[in-house]
Design a protein around this nucleic acid. Sequence first.
DNA 1: ACCTGAACACCGTTCAAGT
DNA 2: ACCTGAACACCGTTCAAGT
Lengths: 262, 262
Amino acid sequence: MARGNPPRQQLSRARVVQAAIELADAEGIEALSMRHLAERLGVVPMALYKHVGDKEDLLDAMVDELIGQVRAAEAGETGPAPTPDPTPGPVRASGAENTPLPAGQPDWADAIRRTILATRTVVQRHGWARRVIETRTVRTPTVLGHMEHLTQLFLRGGLSPDLVHHVMHALGNRIWGFSPELFDESPGGRTRESRSRAEQPDPADYPGIIAIATDAAARRPGATGCDEEFEFRFALDLLLDGITRLQESGWTSTPGRLTPED
Amino acid sequence: MARGNPPRQQLSRARVVQAAIELADAEGIEALSMRHLAERLGVVPMALYKHVGDKEDLLDAMVDELIGQVRAAEAGETGPAPTPDPTPGPVRASGAENTPLPAGQPDWADAIRRTILATRTVVQRHGWARRVIETRTVRTPTVLGHMEHLTQLFLRGGLSPDLVHHVMHALGNRIWGFSPELFDESPGGRTRESRSRAEQPDPADYPGIIAIATDAAARRPGATGCDEEFEFRFALDLLLDGITRLQESGWTSTPGRLTPED
DNA sequence: ACCTGAACACCGTTCAAGT
DNA sequence: ACCTGAACACCGTTCAAGT
């Protein structure tokens, strides 16, 4: 094998994950094979298995790494420089500017919007991220932390655990910074019995998620899991309601409003 | 090879697609390989390539088949028997019953809801459908027809092409009958240069889609494709607006309302 | 403890040959 | 026209062996 391409270094999980992200960025997710990745690292394929459980574990770790960058992206977007300014001042609901719909949303909505748009920024940097996130079935601590963060923003905004629960479902994959690309072309549960590295998550770390899960369980005694049909109809109704109101108000898009010149 | 398992029949595209759906239903999408499928049909792998272009084409055809069943499912759900009753009578906005949110939506919303819930019914019958739909990048005539149908329901409801455009984006993959499963576990554009079978779609078949695409193009001269960020923010705002209203009204879920006993 | 070599049981797809 | 056989260039992962 052509070995010694890179300046051979001690292998580690972080190095493997980093190399995998770079490979997927450079050659696409379909080019990310254990063999190809090993070759890039100047190592035999089996060497990787000391640091990742299997390929799925590697993909989990790649997503984990990206979501871990969200908080930094959020801080970096509010201020121009990535250096965090410790003087907060009166934070006048930024992020509320340049929204397509008429304003008038509470502060918690601005905070939610900021976090979700920061997630979008990170995810958009990697063409493969959306597709990989959609196939994940295990929630790593970082991913749970992201959901916990959003849950807390809603709860602290005064929403009931009941409402937060349904609202998280309704936001759906927009929480991950993407929505489906419907018009790209115009016409013409995996269960893992053993995790390779991550210990079982500690419920104490996710009080918000626990709160809404507990509330949901209390409302539906004897039921296991969510009432997926209810959640689906809830989100659908929420959208149809909003659409109805927009139509009645004679809303028209003004995309120019989104440009910085505005 | 163990051949002659099934009562050997002339191979055809329809038979290949049907067998692929049955295999995916029975053994899961990860068990659907060209070789495995060929074995099931008592045929050598390469025989399949006379009827499907490649594996992606096969997956496209499987989705095409499912979406083609939506109209029948919609008819079958309104009435108890699948035999269509030709006496319409005063259609009192059915489908508006048993929705999680307070009523008060116009007739077009009921029609949209019925179609989307019928899509959901079909998709839910096949565990693999959601994942496969999400990876499709070519729109078959049947899939375009489904989007055209929904577009027309909005346009005939009186929504402007502009609003319909954004609204289709906002509904996102709920159009396909699913939304992401966020809480399954609690803590603790491909471009194809030659299509195997489908001729280029005829724009005349999709006037609604053309109408909203034309309108969108006119609003953003010089732009190619959608303003994805605008669409993302539009949907996000729509949801945040609706959530704000629900909170202010003190909404609480009553899942029991969804049961037939209500 | 960490990496290697060889092997196993698969993939999708090609080409030239059969009937 | 439709199917076959053999081959190519890949996969993820195992096991026992090396250092």
